[in-house]
């Protein structure tokens, strides 16, 4: 089963467990004191470790007033970072979308030996440290790397430039779309597509008219998570970026640079944009999960 997906899909706890606990309160209830202690611990833990860090980002960003916040965001360096981040995210999401659709089609619609192993390989980037995800591309394309001398001879720059940053980001976001689609398409089976083919539809017609409408929320879900990670990636990008000011700094890298220069308002202003991206992603994710559950065929 997919580990990351079970992690990322928030189960709908509300309706079922509410009804259950109301129906049979007695045998499954702890003493009131214990109940309050557990709720207090859970709420306290999440407040300190999750709510406070989120709040502090915005308080620090607006610490010197709204004018200081917006002048920090209007800085040319900030704009160049935002543009680079958007560009890298567009390329990563685009390529991984095509790959994810192809992989999900092959894996979900056909039987072949080694399928589980293939899924494990697709998941691999999730378990590699971000720093190592950057390192592998330094070893390939760096001056001392496998292709370094060849690239230099042909005057091609991959590392410390857009292609390197994009490659590292594609690597870390590699599994998202495929992992969002494989379980959904496996559940939906192949009957509808087979019917379309037998009625004379071409492969592409079948995909665009039959498959795609069934999986559109899943596609959006994968794109959403892929995009959030692409825009927020730090470790892998940090290793391959070279930190050229105004050129190869993405938004997370600029947060670090400004922070190390004690430009707190500027650093937290950029950070607040990324925090907003995270919050919007979480809200959209919750809505999409509900729609995907509607697309899942249910037995009962």
């Amino acid at each position: 089963m997919s580990i990351e997906m079970t992690l990322q899909r928030t189960p709908d706890t509300s309706a079922r467990s509410l009804a259950e606990s109301a129906a049979r309160r007695d045998p499954r209830a702890e003493p009131t004191v214990v109940r309050y202690a557990i709720i207090t611990l859970a709420v306290g833990f999440l407040s300190i470790f999750v709510v406070l860090p989120l709040v502090v980002v915005f308080v620090e960003a607006f610490g010197k007033g709204i004018a200081a916040y917006f002048s920090a965001l209007a800085d040319p360096e900030a704009w160049s970072a935002i543009r680079l981040t958007l560009g890298v995210a567009a390329v990563s999401v685009g390529t991984n979308l095509v790959f994810g659709l192809a992989a999900a089609w092959a894996i979900a619609k056909f039987d072949f030996p080694g399928k589980t192993f293939l899924i494990t390989l697709i998941d691999l980037p999730f378990s590699v440290s971000p720093v190592i995800s950057g390192l592998v591309f330094v070893l390939l394309f760096g001056a001392q790397g496998f292709f370094g001398p060849w690239l230099q001879a042909h005057d091609l720059q991959i590392l410390f430039a857009f292609p390197g940053i994009a490659l590292a980001t594609i690597f870390v976001t590699f599994p998202f779309v495929a992992r969002a689609l494989i379980p959904l398409m496996q559940e939906q089976g192949t009957q509808e597509e087979e019917a379309a083919i037998s009625l004379g539809a071409s492969g592409l017609q079948t995909f665009f008219r039959v498959t795609l409408p069934n999986i559109k929320w899943g596609v959006l879900y994968g794109v959403l998570l892929c995009n959030a990670r692409a825009m927020g990636e730090f470790g892998a990008v940090s290793v391959v970026s070279g930190h050229v000011r105004g050129e190869t700094n993405t938004m997370p890298l600029l947060v670090e640079i400004l922070y190390n220069e004690y430009q707190m308002v500027a650093s937290f202003a950029i950070a607040s944009l990324l925090a907003m991206l995270a919050l919007i992603t979480l809200i959209a994710k919750t809505i999409l999960e509900r729609n995907i559950d509607g697309d899942m065929p249910h037995d009962d």
Binding site: L46, P130, A228, A278, L282
Partner: peptide
Amino acid sequence: AIVDVPFALPTAV
């Protein structure tokens, strides 16, 4: 919902 914040929040932030 906020249990997922550490997944969604960029690590540098």
